[in-house]
Design a protein around this nucleic acid. Structure first.
Lengths: 352, 352
DNA sequence: TTTAGCACTCATATTCCTCGAGTGCTAAAG
DNA sequence: CTTTAGCACTCGAGGAATATGAGTGCTAAA
């Protein structure tokens, strides 16, 4: 059953004043703010109805009402205005992102810091992993007699290198041999496949040569593992402390511990609905226990090579959804514009 | 003037029980704990003396005493026992560090996390910068027609690389030419010198060729800048909230903001006395305002190439100095053992 | 020099009370 | 049937008054 227009206006007024004040809202305040020309008694009746329907809650008999999770949900889905960003805000965001097209990682760090500052909530980012990453080619560079640099390039155009010391020294032809073996036998393999290939090779190769191969391949496996990993980053967790719901440390501590990765709970964007590009999880809708009284607003952005990233804002259920969604979606769009479609096929990729 | 033995025992008992309980210590408690066979009245007299001398403070007339900064200082310098680590603790530390000799950065992250967990305080690390870092050599690797990988190796044996796209494409001889120019004109220069050299070159080089050179040199300059930068990292800041002095958020917020680098105050190890390998700064001894009511215990460790790192623990002035120093020094020693002398001259250095 | 005794101080906890915002219900008015 | 004024009732927040007790400083005797 759809709510009457008046009920909606009342609900909206309650949600918005509660977001602003963090205190239960009474009929009198609603009468003034909702812009309805009815008496407080009428409002009380409507509020009683809304409570009955599950959109409002009463902390105790003689207090005002606060929105329930369902109330927030309705607000977010139907009642909320799209807020506009100020010019200064867009400016700051652009500054943070256009930082000379740096590496993705650093750019994200900076971006999430700014987003946290303009929204007053903690922000997390997460670069989603690709399923299978492989090595595209190996290069070896001689450095003096007893060391060489191994350069590994993945099919995602990420290039990593490592300086490898050879106690016994190594000749140029040997190095070329090594390079040939690596490029013929280990290109195009996933991390697991590499491990298997290496095991097979062990039996039918001279020990000295095998050790060399193994050193490089193990490095390549590390690179692939690292690329496959999801990196969870946060910024601005202390903003939590500015909101009254986290004034009691019992509330703040677990959430902060979760955000600063001090416990090993599964990271949150697990429940991301990729079909929508803006996900809002309100309080109990969160699976993770640490987030039960918390809302999360997440957006995903494209970063080429069919990889997606997630950037999200965390706050109390009484979060300023309107403000946050506006800023977040501007952000995610900008990120997509930067790292996504703009650069075609084999992207420029920068080593960190 | 030196304190009598009895005064010292009393001071020590007060410091230690205050560290344990966070509550002012009265004469009765001291009488029991100091192991002196004198009455509380005598203790009271001695405590009055110690207060007079500035080692103790009285929150209000009818409360016990708490140590002053000078009191802690005396305790740290003369009275404190060296604590022993448990076997489990050394085990955990070793596990964290021996993580297969990974990159320094990751190793430090992990190490500081463990240190924070076993000490219950936040931990920061900082890799101190070298004054002048230069490029030792350039290598260029062709990738397909329109891109190449630039590999830059510094005199600190750090190797970084970047994939650079050339819209117009590039031939093999051109690449070799480029490599020759880079290696002859930009090796051994600091970041600033590179900038100057590049400026000079601009006038007397064909624009097309210059753009190519500039792309690589600018990347090299980024690398040097990054190497010269001090990287400040923290772990376990939420441990702060476990200590009663930070129960009030007004106290906790600025410190946490400082530690999570949300303000731009100068990072703290500026005041490191490198002659000692364990630095303790108690409350007001800290220069930085955010740390006025906070103590910092820092140790430095060697990481080869005459670079030093700093690892430190932050907590309330009522910090368990004995516990912290023991753990911290074990840590710093282990780090030095790992990254310092063990590997001689041109170290194996790992790209991140 | 040490100690017992005692009056005094003062932060904290407890109790009790008041105040008032807000509610639900009822009955009258539209 | 809806709206509104009126009113009694609820219940948390805040404040004053009071009790408690740990701890002190001082004095005088051992």
């Amino acid at each position: 059953m759809a709510l009457s227009d008046r009920k909606k206006r009342i609900l909206r007024a309650i949600v918005e004043t509660y977001i602003a004040t963090a205190e239960p809202v009474g009929s009198k305040a609603v009468a003034q703010l909702a812009g309805l020309d009815v008496s407080t008694a009428t409002i009380r009746n409507e509020m009683a109805d809304l409570t009955e329907l599950g959109y409002l809650e009463q902390p105790h008999t003689s207090a005002g009402r606060i929105p329930s999770a369902a109330g927030y949900r309705l607000y977010v889905n139907e009642l909320m205005d799209r807020q506009q960003l100020t010019i200064q805000e867009t400016q700051r965001i652009n500054d943070a992102l256009n930082l000379k097209m740096e590496e993705l990682d650093r750019c994200l760090d900076r971006a999430s810091k700014v987003l946290s500052q303009i929204s007053d909530y903690p922000v997390f980012t997460m670069a989603a992993a690709r399923e299978k990453v492989t090595v595209k080619r190996f290069d070896l560079l001689m450095v003096e007699d007893n060391a060489f640099i191994a350069v590994v390039m993945t099919d995602t155009s990420v290039v990593k290198n490592k300086l490898i010391h050879i106690p016994g020294g190594l000749s140029d032809p040997q190095l070329q041999m090594l390079s040939a073996v690596l490029n013929s036998s280990f290109v195009g393999l996933s991390r697991e496949e590499m491990g298997e290939a290496l095991d097979k090779m062990e039996t039918r190769t001279a020990p000295g040569a095998f050790d060399l191969i193994a050193m490089v391949v193990e490095f390549a496996m590390e690179v692939l593992a690292d690329q496959g990993q999801q990196k969870f980053r946060t910024a601005g967790i202390t903003h939590l402390l500015e909101h009254p719901e986290y004034r009691s440390l019992d509330k703040a501590k677990p959430l902060m511990a979760y955000l600063s990765e001090e416990n090993d709970a599964p990271r949150l964007p697990a429940t991301l609905d990729t079909s929508k590009n803006m996900n809002i999880l309100i309080g109990p809708e969160n699976v993770n226990d640490a987030l039960k009284d918390t809302s999360v607003v997440m957006a995903s952005y494209d970063i080429g090579d069919n990889m997606r990233g997630v950037i999200g804002v965390v706050g109390p259920t009484r979060m300023d959804y309107s403000k946050v969604t506006a800023r977040l979606s501007y952000f995610a769009d900008s990120l997509t514009r930067m790292f996504g479609k703009e650069l075609p096929s084999p992207e420029e990729s920068t080593e960190e």
